[in-house]
Design a protein around this nucleic acid. Sequence first.
DNA 1: GTGCTTGCAAATGGTTTGCATAAGG
DNA 2: CCTTATGCAAACCATTTGCAAGCAC
Lengths: 151, 151
Amino acid sequence: MQDYNFLSAELKRVLKEKKLKYTLQREVVLRALFSHTGHHSPEELLQLIREGYPEVNIGIATLYRTLALFEEAGLAESISFGKDGKRYEIGHKHHHDHLVCIECNKIIEFHDEVIERRQLEVVREFNFKMLNHTMNIIGICSECQKKSKEK
Amino acid sequence: MQDYNFLSAELKRVLKEKKLKYTLQREVVLRALFSHTGHHSPEELLQLIREGYPEVNIGIATLYRTLALFEEAGLAESISFGKDGKRYEIGHKHHHDHLVCIECNKIIEFHDEVIERRQLEVVREFNFKMLNHTMNIIGICSECQKKSKEK
DNA sequence: GTGCTTGCAAATGGTTTGCATAAGG
DNA sequence: CCTTATGCAAACCATTTGCAAGCAC
């Protein structure tokens, strides 16, 4: 998943499978997600694309449509908490959870096997078919804690 | 927390502490949350209040303001996933997580000590100050799985 | 009385949609 | 060609806000 070529091939595979078309816009959105790790809002991504690929014309509606498509295809993942809409990041092999700092809005990712395994057990117990899961821990990161002490 | 009187007293305590006023609207919102267990959207709650307490006049803006206040005070909790806004429920002693069925929109609550403890460890590891956390497992509940088999 | 509250309506802001045009297959 | 995509602007919808009037204290 480190390799952009792999992602691009994956995009083409998905599009073919769904009988959708390979377009410059879709390519560029994927490229933007790939080259800017982190969690971006659609607006931010639009900005990044317009800066990085000024020759490509893309509207916000197309971006939204593309992000929804990517998420469904597993090429991207979204996180949303409270208002302020969703943020997207490139799809990962491993599921991960988030620590969200309410002061600086930083998002720290973590992956914990104990939690993952336990989730599977819970799901089995309820005879529930898990399609996805999200875990967000809201709080204050260590840096912001320091900052507020300094005040 | 089973007792409404306790909740009502808690509301009054919170209001006094914050130098806010005790109003009929706030009382009625709490009452509605208490008497209708489950996860309700603000619109639904407004409906429930207008049906259950037709003598009380309340606007949607007040409801939103009240729900935000309650959440901050721990009297209510919210869950939000994807679009379709937040849903509120009365505050619980024990934190719990959710299994959300994408077919019938049912929300099943569960509490798992293994996961809770592990979260604390993760948080400590990152030197993160946890204020809240949410875990939602999205999928299809056992009943909806049966239904789709029948088709 | 003073200041918090409320209802109403208007504003907001993220996201979606309708539609005519453009372009992939 | 036929079908899916796109950009634009308008539409949506949950939520927030400004404000004058209404209450709690």
